[in-house]
Design a binder for these strands. Structure first.
Lengths: 192, 192
DNA sequence: CTATTCTTATTACCTAGTAATAATAAATAG
DNA sequence: CTATTTATTATTACTAGGTAATAAGAATAG
């Protein structure tokens, strides 16, 4: 059976389709059909074989990923969920590592999420209208993986006027994953 | 004319609709109708009056925003757009501050975006399968505001084996907003 | 009571599909 | 060359979530 030769065209076309959609997931079947020089039904069959959902689902998936992510890294004030918060003293948050937070190849958590958890917790400890990070120094000790739960402990360790120094320590289980030191500054709304 | 009383219900409903959609932009007209205790045509008229597009357009808008931007913060490898990239040496990215990246009260950019831009640029300079941040030290010099364009310059300044030191300098116009030093480590896929 | 505004209902149409069936074309085995 | 398989295309009926336009009913102001 030299079924390979036959399938080659089809396979190539399907691969082409996948890479087209990777570049631009917002292509309709009609547009794909034109790009791949086949009919619309063929595109549909190919999608079916490859398990690729229709445009609207793809669009929605992308949009929802956005909402699951930016909501946590942007819209909200705090990255992670509060376990304890003693404003002016210390606080603990926990961050569960979701799949859109990791490198797809390695499933390792992207550094800035860990940073963001620590930084936002540091900021949350200060009781003022506006709190800005002045400087930060962090060490990433061990990689954090998908589905890990990162517990961040933060404590105010110093103060000079409106400037605070906060130490943050993040762990997964008993393993230390990040150690950081943040200097944050409390500002009044009008002295900007 | 006590036309106000009449309009009040309508106005309140429209405001309610807006806030519903702010919370969850993925609501159909039918779902909105149920939530607001009116008919579907009324919802449509309200949307028309308020210039709110249909679900699919809203979804697509969100998804495209994701592609223009968030691709950048999570899914993509790099936060910001590349202006120059000389792998192994130096690179420049620019990040435009959008409204979901700032504190709503002050319109000041959240610190971790600035960090993420710098960090991801540092990582991008290294040519290896897997690059992890080992430590980072940053100083936030001046606040960055909505619509600012942050230009980050990064340069490899040292190397010991698979460990690299990268200096990053971010500016808005001629003003320096962040200065940072990152140590990143290149790993092979199998030594994890 | 009447004019006006709101709300609802109804209808025809649209896009981007699903799902299923049938017809046709192409390739290969024997 | 022919039979059979596989791939492709066409066609039809159906769906969600709308647009756009028109008509009819309800509420209220004056």
């Amino acid at each position: 059976m030299v079924v390979l030769k036959r399938n080659r065209q089809k396979l190539e076309r399907q691969q082409a389709m996948v890479s087209q959609l990777q570049e631009n997931p917002f292509l309709t079947d009609e547009e794909l059909a034109e790009l791949l020089f086949v009919s619309v039904p063929t595109v549909r069959l190919d999608r079916l074989e490859l398990g690729i959902p229709e445009l609207r689902v793809r669009t929605k998936d992308v949009a929802e990923q956005f909402y699951g992510q930016i909501r946590s890294l942007g819209a909200g004030e705090l990255i992670g969920d509060i376990l304890e918060l003693d404003v002016g003293k210390r606080g603990i948050t926990v961050l569960e590592v979701k799949k859109d937070m990791v490198f797809s190849k390695t499933k390792i958590l992207r550094g800035h999420y860990l940073f963001a958890q620590a930084n936002s917790l540091a900021v949350a400890l200060i009781n003022a209208d506006v709190v800005l990070t002045g400087s930060a120094s962090v060490r990433y000790l061990t990689p954090v993986f998908l589905k890990d739960k990162v517990v961040a402990h933060a404590e105010i360790v110093g103060q000079k006027g409106k400037s605070f120094v906060i130490k943050v320590n993040s762990k997964v289980g008993s393993e230390e994953v990040l150690r950081g030191r943040f200097t944050v500054v409390a500002k009044e709304m009008n002295d900007l």
